[in-house]
């Protein structure tokens, strides 16, 4: 068993985008890789952090600019825009409808499944500072790190993606 642990392959994904379609792709690959018995890391940075936000407002003291960012950015996996054909929010509604029809797992469930499968979700602390996002506003059970931790995982990874 210990032998197996040490020979586990690694997959890492940098989730930079806060677009629904790209986040879906990232989490489908992450869940697939976990099923391949890989150790999987998703490193969420910049807009990608929005996919890991809680969908309800969390009362926190913030500066004016940070508050503005908080208001303007989508709150969580269920509120992300599409990278194409967003149509003021109609696009995501349509795509969710079509996904349901085709039995594609919705993004919040893909994230839950990823956690269940042991995918490591890491929030980039530098981006959190820039966008004024605090731990309390993000999903529970995240890890917090920077580029060093990401590179530590990625340098051992055979599959490293930037989405």
């Amino acid at each position: 068993m210990t032998m197996k642990e040490t020979t586990k392959e690694k997959t890492t994904i940098v989730l930079f985008s806060g677009d629904l379609d790209k986040a879906i792709a990232a989490f489908i690959i992450a869940n697939g890789a976990a099923s391949y018995d890989h150790e999987v890391t998703i490193f969420a940075t910049f807009w990608g952090l929005n996919a890991l936000r809680k969908d309800t407002p969390v009362p926190i003291k913030k500066g004016f600019l940070e508050k503005m960012f908080g208001w303007m950015m989508p709150r969580g996996a269920d509120n992300l825009p599409l990278s194409k054909m967003n149509f003021m929010g109609m696009g995501p509604k349509m795509i969710k409808h079509i996904m349901k029809k085709h039995n594609v797992v919705p993004l919040p469930d893909l994230i839950g499944m990823a956690k269940e499968q042991g995918v490591k979700l890491v929030a980039c602390t530098m981006s959190m500072d820039l966008l004024g996002i605090q731990k309390e506003e993000l999903l529970d059970d995240l890890e917090y790190a920077g580029v060093g931790a990401y590179l530590g995982d990625a340098s051992e990874g055979k599959v490293n993606l930037f989405i």
């Binding site: 869940n31 099923s35 039995n103 797992v105």
Partner: peptide
């Protein structure tokens, strides 16, 4: 049956 990617391999692994 009826499940879309990535569920067949996720469930197979389980």
């Amino acid at each position: 049956k009826g499940l879309a990617c990535p569920m067949p391999i996720v469930n197979t692994k389980k």
